[in-house]
Design a protein around this nucleic acid. Structure first.
Lengths: 337, 337
DNA sequence: ATGAAAGCGCTAACAT
DNA sequence: ATGTTAGCGCTTTCAT
């Protein structure tokens, strides 16, 4: 556990010069820099984050706040963010809001305030006004991914457009009896499911079709939830839709399994489309709209780095549109007959 | 961003007293403590982790090192650890080794060394000797979950026993043609799959049965991998096993889906048992051996806290056995007459 | 280009 | 029980 002074002694310079040589800040001759670097390597010296953080006010650590961890989407975003942060020399400290309300309060009133992080990435969060206030009071860069955070830079999908694209894909195949499995607006964060549903309804109406209430079913974004919802939608043979648009791939997979359980062929009897490009989408042959969560994590870090080390030449729009892509596999086809 | 001195002034005491009152270390009269706490709350004061860390050498932060993030098991362990750490006032900084070899090297040679963490939890890691050395050189408590980390406190399952229990469950139902889907020893960390396979073989031999090579198939612990392996095992009707023991639930689910694709009934034609109690196990009616990953995360934190604040009365065994539990659902039954 | 010295905000030993 | 004081290890003026 060598300190800066030992490196200085070994390199025959002062601690100040070691600091400059290693951080790249301040002028150091090439020869000195090399000697210092050699000494640091030899001693296995790594700067203490506490000492450096205290002296500079910068910690080289980013807080990532998420509503759950145990969902494919969130871990993929974190994976992308972690890897991008590592490249920039930053650590990632994780705050999971999935626990009790008490835990949640503590995160905002204590953990995020102790100057451990230089910035925070908030993923898919619906924050209370008090929480937003806390974040703003931090006076640190914040970027929101997928959430409608007022006044901070965000990355988001146009969820209404996604709903439209998915529905239009089914319409273009000739489907007219199209059902939708959406989210329970009360359960999910911010109105993402609502937006997707609006997109579905808009596309239906534009095609002269009625997005009937009976063709909608809410679920919880999981495979079992999608299975239950699809079973309801498909159970009545006289009113069976020929296609289902599910607001997430997990629900869409549940729908595929439900169809199979009912003896229906996908896509022969019923087409299914989801949103996500979940890691299992390929396995189930699921047509979907990919949303690249790992890339979202990387992009969030990029925006953050831009806030942390502003480049005056860069334009900095408040919201960045995230990419998506229709991926057609084998779960959608023209309706029979 | 109030500092300790402002709190001291408002409470009419010295900074040292504020520190004592807020940290609980050192004697402070009840009245003073209350005044200090009120002042701190009023000013929204939270101790700076850098300053406190520099002064004490303790950061109240734990590093968690994992091989991947994007798997159900790991995110569940992290979730448990995060919540337990939060309760103890600790942050969790995440190091994902899933990226490039370069990233991995950086984690051990740079990130973990900068004194940002008081301790590390290593989950399911097979470390190189050099990496272990780095960890030891940190001179900080380390606890390993599920990995064979020499010289550090670990939590582990008896994987051979798990393999035996799963196989014995199938044997007790009357199965004799039992296949096994295990891991690829080269791909997976430490010989967990090998241990489970040994347990299977031991149980088979104890029942006077031959665990034939043709009844084994390696896979990658995923649903698609299990599907492929099971398809191979079940495809030949003349040599079809009546039961499959998969070393993970995801592979077991793949096997159930493969059986369905082949027109086989589960458990009528083939019984399937896994290990994990994956979140989807209930949905698929999968019989399994539960291993409670979130609890594992919590237990790891408990062991760590015991290392950080040793209680002389506690016995401290080097390895703690993790709990498991056979959960019988509908994917296993006696073989057809 | 380099060194000396002050100070980042807190804690802990010592003194009272 | 509380205050005073000396660091913790680094960075950053300010000199030279």
């Amino acid at each position: 556990m060598a300190g800066i002074h030992e490196v200085a002694r070994l390199a025959g310079v002062s601690a100040a010069t070691v600091s400059r040589a290693l951080s790249g800040r301040g002028a150091v001759s090439a020869a000195t820099r090399e000697r210092v670097q050699a000494a640091a390597t030899q001693l296995g010296y790594v700067v203490s984050s506490s000492a450096s953080g205290l002296a500079t006010g910068r910690t080289r650590n980013v807080g990532v706040v998420i509503p759950f961890l145990n969902r494919w989407f969130y871990s993929a975003v974190i994976e992308g963010a972690e890897s991008a942060l590592l490249e920039q020399g930053y650590d990632l400290t994780l705050y999971n809001l999935g626990g009790s309300a008490d835990e949640r309060r503590l995160v905002f009133e204590h953990f995020l305030l102790r100057k451990r992080v230089d910035a925070v990435i908030a993923i898919s969060l619906e924050l209370t006004p008090a929480e937003v206030e806390r974040l703003i009071a931090l006076d640190k860069p914040i970027v929101g991914v997928g959430g409608p955070l007022a006044g901070v830079r965000t990355l988001s999908l146009d969820d209404e457009q996604l709903g439209r694209i998915a529905t239009e894909h089914l319409l273009s195949l000739g489907h007219t009896a199209i059902a939708h499995i959406g989210g329970d607006a009360l359960e999910m964060d911010f109105h993402l499911p609502t937006h997707r549903r609006h997109g579905y309804e808009t596309a239906m109406r534009a095609a002269g079709l009625d997005p009937a209430e009976s063709r909608f079913h809410a679920a919880d974004f999981t495979i079992p939830g999608g299975h239950r919802a699809a079973t309801q939608l498909l159970a009545d043979p006289t009113a069976r839709p020929t296609a289902i648009f599910a607001a997430s791939d997990e629900m869409a997979i549940g729908a595929i399994l439900a169809a199979r359980d009912l003896g229906l062929d996908v896509p022969g009897d019923v087409s299914v489309i989801g949103i996500d490009d979940h890691e299992l989408a390929g396995f189930f042959g699921l047509t979907t709209i990919a949303q690249f969560p790992a890339l979202q994590g990387r992009m969030a870090v990029q925006v953050l780095m831009d806030e942390l080390h502003p480049d005056p030449r860069t334009s900095r729009s408040l919201n960045t549109e995230l990419p998506h892509e229709l991926v057609v596999r084998s779960s959608t086809a023209a309706p029979r007959g």
